[in-house]
Computed example of a mutant assay.
Amino acid sequence: MVNLLISQFSAIARRSLGPGSEVGMGALIWLLIPLVAAVAAGLWGSWANRTRKVRSDGPELDGYARFRAAMEKSHSGT
């Protein structure tokens, strides 16, 4: 798919810039692919490293305390 896009762009460049420019334009397009990937990686990295709302451990610790208390109760009749 990338080759198809590059060949289409090269055909447009050939018509507009004249013969002999397709080699240079093809090289520029192949250099744009890592550039776009680097920009996308930077955007993803900044999104993944964003500051998130701090949440306390209160509800989890309260649930664990209730679980422990329930397990420590002695069950008679069994």
Rank of each mutant, 00 (worst) to 15 (best):
D62S: 11
D57N: 15
L4A: 03
S46M: 13
R66K: 08
A13P: 08
F67W: 09
V54A: 15
D57A: 09
A11D: 11
L5S: 02
F9V: 03
S7H: 00
V2G: 02
N49A: 14
H75E: 11
S46H: 08
E72A: 12
A11F: 02
G18H: 04
V2Q: 01
K53I: 10
R55Q: 13
L4R: 01
G63P: 02
W47Y: 11
S10T: 00
D57E: 05
E72T: 12
G20E: 06
G18N: 04
L17C: 03
G42F: 00
G24T: 01
S21D: 09
L61T: 09
F67G: 06
G42D: 09
S10V: 05
T51R: 06
R14I: 04
L17Y: 04
A27K: 12
V54G: 07
G26Q: 08
L35I: 11
L5E: 02
E60Q: 15
M1V: 15
M25Q: 04
V39S: 02
L35D: 03
A69R: 12
E60D: 11
A27Y: 10
D62I: 13
W30C: 05
S56K: 05
K53F: 15
A40L: 13
G24Y: 00
I33L: 13
S74N: 05
L32V: 11
R55G: 09
A65I: 08
E60H: 06
A13T: 04
N49K: 07
I33V: 12
L61E: 12
I12N: 02
G63E: 14
A48E: 06
W30P: 00
R50A: 13
P19W: 05
E22H: 02
I6W: 05
R66V: 10
E72N: 13
A41W: 11
V23Q: 12
L5M: 09
N49L: 15
I33M: 13
F67R: 08
I12H: 03
E60T: 12
L43S: 13
W44L: 13
R68C: 07
H75I: 10
W30S: 10
L28T: 00
G45N: 08
L61H: 09
R68D: 07
R68N: 11
S46R: 15
A70P: 05
W44F: 15
V36I: 10
W44G: 12
R52L: 07
R14H: 01
A40H: 01
F9G: 03
R52D: 00
P19A: 12
H75M: 06
A38T: 10
G42H: 04
S16Q: 12
A13V: 03
D62N: 14
L43Q: 15
E60V: 15
L32R: 00
E22R: 05
L35E: 03
A13L: 08
A40K: 09
R52C: 10
A69D: 10
Y64F: 13
L28F: 05
Q8P: 01
L43F: 14
G20P: 01
G26T: 01
D62K: 15
A13S: 08
G58T: 12
G42N: 09
S7A: 01
R14T: 01
L5N: 12
L32G: 00
A27S: 14
G77K: 08
S46E: 07
I6N: 02
R50H: 14
K53T: 14
V23E: 10
R68T: 11
A13H: 00
F9R: 05
R15L: 00
V2S: 03
M25E: 02
A13W: 01
I12P: 06
